[in-house]
């Protein structure tokens, strides 16, 4: 069984306190199917194919941050000068408000590395889906 994020957060704290956590830089391999379930957390604000409270996600990988036409980004996001790829997404989604101070995405982030990798794999795969054609 997969531990829920909350349990992992508790365990993570305990491990960190015991000095058992070391930073690892390689990103885990993501499972898009598991990522679809993680993406449910984003669905109050985002859709793949159209702008809502947050910008649409079709075409996310490979596009400059803050660049969907017709979406009103924060100044903070407009100033970001990276392109969305697995690495930049991993950093942003771990802690959006710390990674882009002043962002209007008021969300704590996805703290679990594997869940983030799954989520990014899903967004990447969905970018090639029928739903994303013409978007």
């Amino acid at each position: 069984m997969k531990l829920p994020g909350l349990t992992q957060a508790f365990l993570g704290l305990a491990l960190a306190a015991a000095g058992g956590v070391t930073a690892e830089t390689r990103l885990p391999v993501g499972d898009p199917q598991a990522g679809e379930a993680v993406y449910a957390r984003c669905l109050a604000c985002h859709a793949l194919a159209y702008n809502r409270t947050g910008p649409k996600h079709c075409g996310l990988l490979g596009r400059r941050a803050g660049s969907v036409p017709g979406f009103e980004y924060s100044d903070a996001m407009k100033r970001v000068n990276w392109v969305w790829d697995r690495k930049t997404l991993d950093r942003f989604l771990a802690d959006p408000m710390k990674t882009v101070p002043g962002t209007t995405m008021g969300y704590a982030g996805v703290k679990d590395r594997q869940e983030r990798a799954d989520l990014i794999a899903y967004i990447e795969q969905a970018g090639n889906s029928a739903e994303c054609r013409n978007h």
């Binding site: 984003c42 109050a44 604000c45 408000m97």
Partner: peptide, 12 residues
């Protein structure tokens, strides 16, 4: 989605 969004708002 809304539950998740508020869950993501509480700690920040």
């Amino acid at each position: 989605g809304a539950v998740s969004a508020y869950l993501g708002a509480v700690p920040v």
